[in-house]
């Protein structure tokens, strides 16, 4: 057991963690969006987006156009929703914008998903970001890990095993 070696290892671990945290926060600042990269969790936008697709968001736009795909969060519901803007009403004097959204694969619009008594979303309050970029399927790993307990333990086991192996050389 070499104390210096262990400390160096600890330091490099800290370096990896802090640099990924800084990357995420930097991206978050740059896009003005609290989660600039999201994974699609539902099939309501098929065939455009499937479960597991990765989306890159941008939130520095003042207003959205009809046809934009936005990610929004409804107060009191934890899961963000990715749907397309169907209607928009923008007030140039106050800068406020009301949006109505709909999933491409759904029959009706999103009013039943909104907070009780709301018939529109508020751009500044509810919208997390507008989808700008797309990579298919790569995010399925995160869904798999979060929904399958064997995958979770398997991954932990693999990590433990690799740390054992690497400490031998």
């Amino acid at each position: 057991m070499n104390l210096r070696l262990e400390l160096t290892r600890f330091l490099s671990l800290g370096y990896v963690l802090s640099s990924s945290f800084m990357f995420w926060m930097g991206l978050s600042l740059f896009t003005d969006c609290h989660s600039p990269i999201v994974v699609v969790l539902s099939g309501s936008m098929e065939p455009a987006f499937q479960r597991g697709d990765i989306l890159f968001l941008w939130n520095r736009n003042e207003k959205n156009n009809v046809g934009d795909v936005v990610v929004y969060e409804v107060a009191g519901k934890s899961i963000p929703i990715v749907h397309r803007v169907l209607k928009q009403h923008y007030d140039r004097s106050t800068g406020e914008q009301l949006l109505l959204t709909k999933g491409d694969n759904n029959n009706g619009d999103d009013v039943p998903l909104y907070a009780r008594g709301n018939y529109y979303l508020n751009k500044t309050k509810d919208v997390v970001g507008t989808v700008k970029g797309y990579i298919p399927q790569l995010g399925y790993v995160t869904i798999w890990i979060s929904e399958n307990k064997y995958a979770k333990f398997g991954l932990l086991g693999l990590l433990a095993l690799s740390s054992l192996i690497s400490s031998e050389d």
């Binding site: 455009a48 009809v66 209607k87 007030d91 140039r92």
Partner: peptide, 25 residues
Amino acid sequence: TKQVFAYVTAEYEGDENPHTMNEIT
């Protein structure tokens, strides 16, 4: 190109509140 989404919208200015710009699919 995976898919194209085609949509027809109606665009118009507000009447009672002339500051609004509206667009509806």
